[in-house]
Design a protein around this nucleic acid. Sequence first.
DNA 1: CACGCCGTGCCGCGTCACGGCACGGAAGGA
DNA 2: TCCTTCCGTGCCGTGACGCGGCACGGCGTG
Lengths: 237, 237
Amino acid sequence: MQNVVTALRVLEEVSARQPVGVGELARELGLPKSTVQRSLRTLHDAGWIRPAGGEVTRWQVTSKLLQVARRTELGLRDAAVPVMEELRQQTGETVHLMVPEGEAVVLIERLETDKPLRIVLPLGIRLPLHASANGKAVLAHLDRPLDELPAYTGTTIVDGEALRAELAAVRARGYADNRGEWRSDIAAVASAILGADGSPVASISISTPASRMPDDLRAAYGALVTRAARTLTGSLG
Amino acid sequence: MQNVVTALRVLEEVSARQPVGVGELARELGLPKSTVQRSLRTLHDAGWIRPAGGEVTRWQVTSKLLQVARRTELGLRDAAVPVMEELRQQTGETVHLMVPEGEAVVLIERLETDKPLRIVLPLGIRLPLHASANGKAVLAHLDRPLDELPAYTGTTIVDGEALRAELAAVRARGYADNRGEWRSDIAAVASAILGADGSPVASISISTPASRMPDDLRAAYGALVTRAARTLTGSLG
DNA sequence: CACGCCGTGCCGCGTCACGGCACGGAAGGA
DNA sequence: TCCTTCCGTGCCGTGACGCGGCACGGCGTG
């Protein structure tokens, strides 16, 4: 079903470059114009894209994508949001819910702090497993080779053995933390939500500017996030 | 490109029923199992779905959808979020950003109140033009026939002439309101964000439980939301 | 006026999607 | 234990339809 692959690539490209025309898409994807146009027509008929603002030759994606996407991990999200809300009330800080996928964790829900200085990450963003609190929380419950550890800042853990020791500590204390390992001015604590078989299905975190997480608060936040994750792990039985 | 349509239907159905198997999908879509399976394999190869948790015969969508979806209306959202945040700080209430699409408005961003009693609408939800504050704010700047006005509650405006008068009032005062016209216990005020040509490209609203919006507050919120929308209209020049 | 690029539409070729069917396995009931 | 049912998977002959080269008309530019 090569044409399906083509159509999906076109959809993705439209999403990335909207509003965009046939020619540009064809050039960018390395496909004949006819092929791209057929895909566009089909996607349009199916309601996934539409002509952009008056111009009938420019295309953009419709909210169909949003409608379909919001159903991802629906049950998990429904269960998690009230708990996340409680965390935000208790700490006044931003709370994230992420799920592992491939070699990364993906942000699927967030509740933001009221404070003017805050972390804002877009839904769907992917963070590295070895250089984020949520990633390490998840990684601590996985058994996978720890190689290829790119550095993002001066504090990123790039040595496999050091990371292994860190993950053991994470398992012992219940939560992972992040001391500027992905972005030097961001700190976080995170704890994994486990499925019935003990595998990590998600992770919940509290993220703050580095300046708002001294060691004593870090420990307190860590305890809170660990308890929240345990609650959710229990409610998924 | 019938198979593309099929594959997209399968993708949508997977999203709605995940985790789900071949048989159920085939039954639900009225398609041969072979056809559905071919679509599943293709979607999997393209990275849009994956086997669900251990079970290799159950499928769920990946975060690919989320990644692609979050790029919709990106510029608008970036511009709007700071203004929405200011609104939430000023009012302490939930703020929504919606865009018109077809015969509805679609929720593309939200900032929620801290209060325990709150409106929670999922991203991507569609609300009717004639029975929501955002819908009426948008409709006031459109010229389209006002027929087919289904009632959702006792206060829904179902008469075309009455709606026309209401829309004139909306234009005059700058904002639209909603007095339980879609859900009887939800109140809102909204104001349209206009493009360079005067057409409505989005709308911003403050939504509260009906009990939290007496007339004096409604007027105050209306003024705030109108100013916010004007700011955004200006920044899109 | 010529040129380049745009989006669109046509059409013959040949590929590949269609869908009926059979198979092996798991689950469950008699 | 055997039989039935439903599951997911894979095969294969037929023919529909997607492929992509090409031409056309429109538009902005040099």
